[in-house]
Amino acid sequence: MKRTHLPLNGLRVLDAAARHLSFTRAADELAVTPAAVGQQIRALEDMLGVVLFRRTPKGLELTPETEAGLDALRAGFLEFEEAVRAMQAGQASLALTIAAPRDITAKWLQARLAAYASGQPDLRFQLIAADEALDFTEANLDLALRLADSAGEHEGVRIGEAAFVTLEAAAGGPAHRIEWPGCPHGDEPVTIRVADAGLAIEAAANGFGRASVPSLLAQADIASGRVRVVGEASPSPLSYWLIAPMPQWRQKKVKALVEALTA
């Protein structure tokens, strides 16, 4: 059934004017001019085909038509307020759904989520393994982490530098190349091919050769001494981005998490 177009601004003005029985006080409440209140009331009267107020020596009086509709009008506004609260409840929830490639989740994201949640025992995460962009609405995502050259069509912020580092086992190893989808090309012979950059780091740590991976991904393994850096970091068009469409990006819980992950 097609819904009747509701003049919500006019009805809001009507409610205020009926409570105060004064266009001036209604205007103060609504932060508009008394003339604007009068204009809204006249437009509403024209639309409804009824007179809403009588002007008397004592001031404004409600007509029977206005009195007949006020209770339902105010009940409707309460329902609107409840609907808004229900829609905003997700922002206050303690659950966050995040999509990210498996390697950055294991090597970087999980440790930081655990630290973020340490002072918030009711916080809950759902992590989705995904290397490609997902439909945020279909997957009910709050945030995604991507290796890309930009945030693309979404809002986003880059984390870490846009650089790759070459790693080998702490004790050294062959100069063979460990290959994974997305790794820079090279002339060295390939000794092993793996599914992602995280597995490439593991292969380097186990002595298979050298892996060129995003510097952010390698931080923990370099710091722990499992691998060492060979040569200088090389600039890359790719880096890790936290991204989300504008509605999700503006949520308080997402803003707080992004701030924590980029601190």
Rank of each mutant, 00 (worst) to 15 (best):
A89T: 04
P237A: 14
G90C: 02
R146P: 03
A195L: 09
P174L: 07
A175W: 07
L217S: 02
I178M: 04
D71E: 08
R12C: 02
E202K: 09
V84L: 15
N140V: 10
A26N: 02
R12F: 02
R112H: 13
M1K: 09
K58F: 12
R25D: 15
L147K: 14
I243M: 08
A162R: 14
G172F: 08
I222L: 15
L217E: 01
R74C: 00
E202V: 06
L143D: 01
A86N: 02
I98L: 06
L8W: 14
L60P: 01
G90H: 02
I104K: 00
F164G: 03
D187F: 08
I104T: 02
G231L: 05
P34K: 11
G76D: 00
P235T: 02
H5G: 05
I178Q: 03
A244H: 12
D103I: 00
Q110S: 14
E179Y: 02
L94R: 15
H185N: 10
L14P: 00
V227A: 05
A89G: 08
E168Q: 13
P245T: 10
G231Q: 05
L238I: 04
A195V: 07
L147I: 06
G231R: 06
S224Y: 01
I98E: 01
D28C: 07
F208Y: 15
A133K: 11
L109C: 02
Q251W: 12
S236K: 06
T97W: 05
R55F: 09
A72W: 09
Q120F: 11
T4M: 13
V230F: 12
A106N: 11
W249S: 11
A17M: 08
P101R: 00
S234K: 15
T4G: 06
A95G: 12
T262L: 07
D196G: 06
R124V: 14
A195R: 07
A169L: 05
E153P: 13
N140P: 04
A114P: 06
V227C: 11
G152N: 12
K2H: 12
Q88G: 05
K107F: 10
G59W: 04
Y240R: 03
L167P: 00
K107A: 11
K58G: 08
D149M: 09
D187C: 06
R12G: 08
Q248E: 15
A233Y: 03
T66D: 00
R226Q: 04
H20E: 04
T63R: 06
L199I: 10
E232S: 14
E138Q: 11
G152C: 09
T166F: 03
D187A: 10
D28K: 14
P64E: 10
V190T: 11
E29S: 10
D149F: 12
D71N: 01
N206L: 14
G90P: 01
R55K: 09
V157G: 05
V194A: 02
E132G: 08
D196K: 01
